[in-house]
Design a protein around this nucleic acid. Structure first.
Length: 554
RNA sequence: GCGCCUGUAGCUCAGGGGAUAGAGCGCCGGCCUCCGGAGCCGGGUGCGGAGGUUCGAUUCCUCCCAGGCGCGCCA
């Protein structure tokens, strides 16, 4: 039982019937939406407004006839009331029985309620975070992690086959610099008076790694030539930082199916291969010793270097090989989540894929905007110059995983985020994450109390006792959940889930205050407990979709 | 200069071609013999500006203004 589908189908067949009679257009685009104003019904359609122009008739007249047609389609009696309103909307009020049926469906489906088949088993490769292993994850990466992980969960729940991947940039200039920086730190600890390389990594974490490494190997590499020491230090730095990143993500309850190393593309010859293919396709040319890709002819601003004058390939070349590899796997969609600072990179990647003869429509790039930390009403300073970022770990330690993940998702990722640390760590009513979790804990508490009172739970409670407006109202919120999941998945917008949960929670808390679950007649208690079960399920599912726990006690 | 994102209530933000634009925070008042007060109820001045498309624009288009982020043979 899906109220939306039923409503859409009734309207659809009503329109079809009338169109046969009127001889109107074959295709019309009509919307069925939930009106903002409750008095405008459970659903409303603009069908008559859309058709009126074509038919050269008054919208309200069309609506009146359409209304009759829809009513005739409703042989099951799902519709309680139909009316023409405003300029020609048709407002639809469903019967209480329709909502009770939805509740029954929610109970029946349990943990799978809302798992619509939206994705139809389509395979999606979702890459996110992919921060360079040159330092610990900071608050910005945290947002990418929260968004990416939630999206993975939502897409999977909506029926997509999702694989998550972290792309590790373990080669290139930045990693070289990292290796040199660690080497310098090591020598400093050995008592050498040497400076960090220019543009080296100055963070404390490298000193820690150097110290740890020196404890293991002593001064063994003190007199080894830089050239010899370099590959080792590069690897040590990269491995240990990556290990820290893994642990941070684990602590943040973010899981990756695969960790894909950029280095493997060089080792396997994939980079050379993709260059060769572009050459064969006539997409390359040389200039001033460097090899360029003709990306401008595919819509990029200008042509881009793939092989430098010194013979080394660029990051772009690796990334091309990487995306070519992703495209060759049988994924219908390839989704990349990037920090907004990389947005200028998107056109050239798409251009390159087109240059390789791929359909770049399969590639979706989601750009997550920046994060500012706010503490006590003031922006927490972050310095790019000194590399002094607040780390993700610090945020987790300060506010906890649940609050951190929730706050990251409480804004559309298209917008800049002001992350209010003070509010996030408030363990009280002002904090929205507890407001939602409290619903879950409260319902669990009701059941504990019910057991305490010796309540015998009915396996198939009669729902017909639920007829109060507040009861129907709460059912309506529950019924909306599958729609929210579908929309969230389709739009790739995880934030819709927490917003929905807040709305549901408000309804529940208000209901709780106005009515009692226990102590009513046995029949009513059983019905109310069924309703509570459905709410608890939806809260539990919704929270799990954004990676937040649903505690039984708080 | 060019490109991407964003301008909605005091603050932080949802929403979105339609009928009276919402929430949280903050502020001011109420509510605990009763399933958990981490709760409930009440109180509101707002779509940056100018044009355009439309029966209808806060939503779409153009321009302008403001903020953020980019524009490397870095990644």
């Amino acid at each position: 039982m899906d109220v939306r589908k039923i409503t859409e189908s009734l309207i659809g067949s009503g329109i079809k019937r009338k169109l046969e009679e009127w001889g109107g257009p074959e295709e019309v685009s009509v919307s069925v939406e939930i009106p903002r104003q409750e008095e405008h019904g459970d659903f409303a359609t603009n069908a008559a407004l859309q058709l009126a122009g074509n038919l050269k008739r008054k919208p309200r007249d069309v609506a009146a006839e359409l209304l009759d047609a829809i009513r005739r389609e409703d042989t099951e009696g799902w519709i309680r009331d139909l009316s023409v309103a405003g300029p020609g909307f048709i407002n639809i009020v469903l019967s209480d029985e329709a909502w009770r049926e939805t509740l029954a469906t929610a109970l029946e489906k349990g943990e799978r309620f809302g798992a619509a088949g939206e994705g139809e088993g389509e395979s999606v490769l979702l890459e996110f975070v992919s921060a360079n292993p040159t330092g610990p994850l900071h608050v910005g990466h945290g947002r990418g992690a929260a968004v990416g992980d939630a999206l993975a969960r939502i897409l999977a729940f909506a029926g997509f086959r999702v694989t998550t991947e972290y792309y590790v940039n373990d080669v290139g200039n930045q990693i070289d610099k990292l290796g040199m920086s660690l080497h310098a730190r090591y020598l400093q600890l050995c008592g050498r008076k040497i400076e960090l390389p220019e543009d080296g990594y100055r963070g404390e974490y490298l000193i820690d790694i150097a110290r740890e490494f020196r404890e293991e190997v002593g001064d063994r590499y003190l007199s080894v030539s830089e050239k010899e020491a370099f590959p080792l230090f590069r690897k040590v730095a990269c491995d240990r930082i990556l290990d820290g990143i893994r642990k941070d993500l684990e602590a943040f309850h973010v899981h990756f199916d695969r960790w894909f190393r950029e280095g493997s593309l060089h080792e396997s010859g994939a980079v050379a291969e993709v260059l060769e293919e572009l050459r064969e396709r006539g997409q390359l040319y040389e200039s001033e010793g460097a090899v360029y890709f003709k990306s401008e002819s595919h819509g990029d601003e200008k042509d881009r270097v793939l092989v430098r004058a010194d013979g080394r390939t660029t990051y772009f070349a690796s990334d091309l090989a990487y995306h070519r590899a992703k495209f060759r796997q049988a994924h219908a969609r390839v989704i990349d989540i990037w920090g907004a600072d990389h947005h200028g990179y998107a056109p050239r990647l798409s251009a390159a894929l087109r240059g390789l003869g791929e359909n770049d429509d399969r590639l979706e790039i989601l750009l997550v905007q920046f994060v500012s930390l706010i503490r006590d009403g003031k922006t927490v300073p972050m310095s790019t110059r000194t590399g002094e970022f607040t780390t993700l770990r610090e945020v987790i330690d300060e506010v906890g995983v649940d609050a951190a993940r929730f706050f990251y998702l409480l804004r559309s990722f298209h917008s800049h985020l002001d992350f209010d640390l003070t509010l996030a760590k408030t363990r009280s009513s002002e904090n929205p994450v507890y407001y939602i979790q409290y619903v879950h804990a409260r319902i669990c508490s009701i059941f504990r109390e019910a057991v305490e009172r010796g309540t015998v739970f009915s396996t198939s409670p009669s729902l017909s006792v639920l007829s109060l407006p507040d009861e129907i109202q709460l059912m309506k919120r529950v019924a909306r959940f599958p729609d929210v999941v579908s929309e969230s998945a389709r739009a790739r917008e995880p934030h819709r889930i927490p917003f929905y949960l807040l709305d549901l929670s408000r309804q529940f808390h208000a209901f709780y205050h106005n009515h009692r679950f226990l102590g009513e007649s046995n029949e009513r208690t059983q019905g109310r407990l069924a309703l509570a079960t459905a709410v608890r399920n939806v809260v539990s599912i919704g929270l799990s979709l954004i990676g937040v726990s649903a505690p039984e006690r708080m």
